[in-house]
Write a protein that binds this DNA or RNA. Structure first.
Lengths: 273, 273
DNA sequence: ACTATCTTTTGGTCCTACATATTAAGGAAA
DNA sequence: TTTCCTTAATATGTAGGACCAAAAGATAGT
């Protein structure tokens, strides 16, 4: 007794129509995406199997797989193997959008000063919002985590990657407290794109301690609801970062972000474009 | 024709290794993406054909197509049919990032307030930077263009789309004067995704005049180097926008962005320049 | 009742064949 | 010689089959 009478409503509503030639994959992907975003398919629901979609769209399985791959890429679906497997609708996470932005930023040549002043501007707004909207336990957690970072730095066997990761996590907590996913989007994208700046701060020994001490103060100011002092701390952080980078630049003559290396390749390239 | 002597350098460098089973598609996609983002493949260059990649990765053509589809989805490559066709590396456009963000926000049912407060925060920083760094002729041009917008609004045959477009252009000029490309990109990304908000402001008759009058004042304050007054104008703009949306919401019981449809937006794949 | 094995479902991979688009080359006509 | 049409070559796009691997349930054996 198959559920032939209980087909989903997008079947009877003719929601899926045969794809046109030439761009069948895009066509199928667009129809499925429209069904998901339009609310006809809710998160957690399961799409028909690939072989069933193949006959519904009157197309080949490769086309269906291509479309599903695009949706998976966007974070709209999650596909599982095996019986009762298939494509399941997901809530899109902000990380997917951040990855797109990070991919774009990675291809651009960005001077570190531009990045710093942008981040500082964002951080200042986040601080104000976080003080106003952050929940008490969030603020307490932020303070506690800065303390953990402090003890981690003071221990001699401090792993550099671990410290940077903790700093990254703190920034994300911070951004989340602003209760505005757009700030989260930006913050995640920046972190994905450029890890090297914070790395620099935690690599130099005098700066590392100042940085975490500043973090502790910032978190406390946020927890206690002192916006002006928090802003002051943030400015202090970026002042330190600028100074640290300037010192490095004077020793290494390196003013750019190491986003991409194009030294070995461009020499032998005689592209007529 | 056997160009066996002129293999590309990523061949001899062992850049592409056979894919792992189970997630061969992702594996291939990751390797190709790494090659592009890492700078081994520059924009304009052509990847090997699908059938050649198929043998290089020691895999099937479906896997290669899946990987290329993922890269195409991200905007990293553009694929053309026919002789001299194939996958060509592209510069990623902001539009892809903004589409991802729009998709996320649409599914999260984000309130327009989040977008407004983010834009206001960005605008305030841009204003300060634009006053400090904008060239005199840029400032003059900004003032002149706000005048043009003013006269366009006063003429009765004002096309709504044209007005919104002029507003959009003004915002971009404004962002450019900050001499920081990140602000420009973020502004463009937000504009690509959410045109509807400004649209609302220019649709209502009382708000339209106030908005352009405010633009004129803002431009003059920027040109004359009055940061506090410029910031005041910007806040006034968003106060108006909030009020306008609130009125619309009260009449239509529509509190969110009308971003459910994605189909019409994805059409602008080509360069929006 | 529990465990091991089989069966079914479903995605993952590989393959061949054909369709279609685009470019380049070659030959006929002006 | 120039122009236009035809044809070939090369590439992606699509169709559909076959088989493998994994996951869940059904079944048989203990």
């Amino acid at each position: 007794m198959a559920n032939s009478m209980n087909k989903n409503e997008y079947d009877s509503n003719q929601l899926f129509s045969p794809a046109q030639v030439g761009r069948a994959g895009e066509d199928v992907a667009l129809q499925l995406e429209a069904a998901i975003v339009g609310g006809h398919l809710l998160p957690g629901e399961r799409l028909p199997s690939e072989r069933e979609l193949q006959v519904r769209f009157r197309t080949g399985r490769g086309v269906v797989r291509e479309a599903l791959g695009a949706l998976k890429q966007k974070g709209l679906i999650e596909v599982r193997k095996g019986a009762k497997g298939g494509a399941f609708v997901r809530q899109v996470e902000v990380g997917y959008a951040s990855q797109s932005l990070a991919l774009f930023l990675a291809q651009q040549e960005i001077r570190s000063e531009n990045l710093i002043e942008f981040r500082e501007s964002i951080d200042r707004t986040i601080a104000i919002l976080a003080i106003a909207r952050g929940l008490p336990d969030e603020k307490a957690q932020l303070v506690a985590d800065t303390r953990r970072l402090e003890t981690a730095v003071e221990s001699s066997d401090a792993d550099l990657a671990l410290l940077v990761e903790m700093d990254r996590s703190l920034n994300l907590q911070f951004a989340r407290m602003a209760r505005n996913p757009i700030f989260e989007w930006i913050m995640k994208a920046l972190q994905l794109g450029f890890r090297s700046l914070d790395h620099a701060l935690y690599a130099a020994d005098p700066y590392r301690r100042q940085c975490v001490a500043n973090w502790v103060t910032t978190a406390r100011d946020i927890a206690e609801g002192e916006p002006m002092q928090a802003l002051s701390c943030i400015s202090s952080h970026y002042t330190m970062l600028r100074r640290c980078l300037k010192e490095m630049r004077e020793t290494q003559t390196e003013g750019r972000l190491p986003g991409r290396r194009q030294g070995a390749n461009t020499a032998e390239r005689s592209d007529p474009c």
